[in-house]
Design a protein around this nucleic acid. Structure first.
Lengths: 154, 154
DNA sequence: CTACAAGTTCAAGTCAACTTGAGGTCAAGA
DNA sequence: TCTTGACCTCAAGTTGACTTGAACTTGTAG
């Protein structure tokens, strides 16, 4: 009934800490109205947005990236299924890439390490065409690679 | 021929920054002898160890975990293929879990978000049985979850 | 002999995503 | 009236994996 929820109600329902919610607001991922007292009031639809944020994080996206995605949502109405689907459609590719890397690593457990060829400069497994040209500062692997890629805008 | 390499030689051959190598040594992941000058000299076998470290990092392991694994290597001889294999064997499970999660997330892109059911408290996709009981400080997702799990020793 | 590159140590800085703490406001109940 | 509890802001702290900078030493080439 009550369409506006307090920060702790949202926190409980979403599993996201109140401090994190404030942080998300500060970073522009979510917005809130204010009660007369200055307390935040969130529309129920924020829960769906939070679900999206959590989801995207599990895919390894940074908050900046997520904000950019959320900015694509229509401002004139509460986003519906098709709006969300438009955002998340392209992610399938991302997930597939990640799965592919894992499969490669898994294969390497049997092949590469087992057979004894494991060597940084020769092994196609450990050095899959991108370790040579380092990106940002320091070795950025795994999720790190993802982040570096997006920080540079690719 | 020369069996001992300088830190920059190792850095070049491994793609791991010299500063990172010093850091790894400080953290006990690798060891070095010293030349009369006080400069580090690494045996060539260190390259294999570094390959392992890089590999493990791409699997989302922390340096502490990796060190623990490396400590299981025999001290009485340069580790061979079977030694490495014994370490990395159990990881297949880990990788499979990760792949499974990705598959689940991928399925959710079509199902959950598309159909409009996306909701933190109801969705089996976003809330796969562990978001309720939070672990460490703050939301630890994705790799974060992995780390948290191991930090707590499970 | 003098550069200069390559190495050393140690302390401090970086980044993301939060958390924690101090200090303050406000409304409702005993 | 007093207290409790929920909320606020703002600054500073946390974690992991490094990087960067300052100040210094060594080995080698010209």
């Amino acid at each position: 009934m009550d369409n506006l929820l307090t920060i702790n109600q949202i926190s409980r329902r979403s599993g996201v800490a109140a401090s994190a919610l404030r942080y998300y607001e500060e970073r522009g991922l979510i917005a809130s109205e204010r009660a007369g007292s200055g307390h935040r009031r969130f529309p129920r639809a924020i829960l769906r947005k939070l679900a999206f944020i959590v989801f995207a994080q599990r895919l390894g996206m940074s908050l900046d990236e997520i904000r950019a995605e959320l900015d694509k949502l229509p401002a004139d109405h509460v986003p519906k299924g098709r709006d969300w689907a438009r955002l998340s459609g392209p992610w399938t590719k991302r997930i597939d890439e990640r799965i592919a890397e894992l499969e490669r690593l898994k294969a390497g457990l049997a092949e590469c390490i087992g057979c004894g060829c494991l060597s940084l400069d020769r092994c196609r497994l450990v050095n899959p065409a991108d370790r040579a040209g380092q990106l940002g500062p320091g070795p950025l692997f795994w999720v790190g690679m993802e982040r570096a890629r997006s920080r540079r805008g690719a």
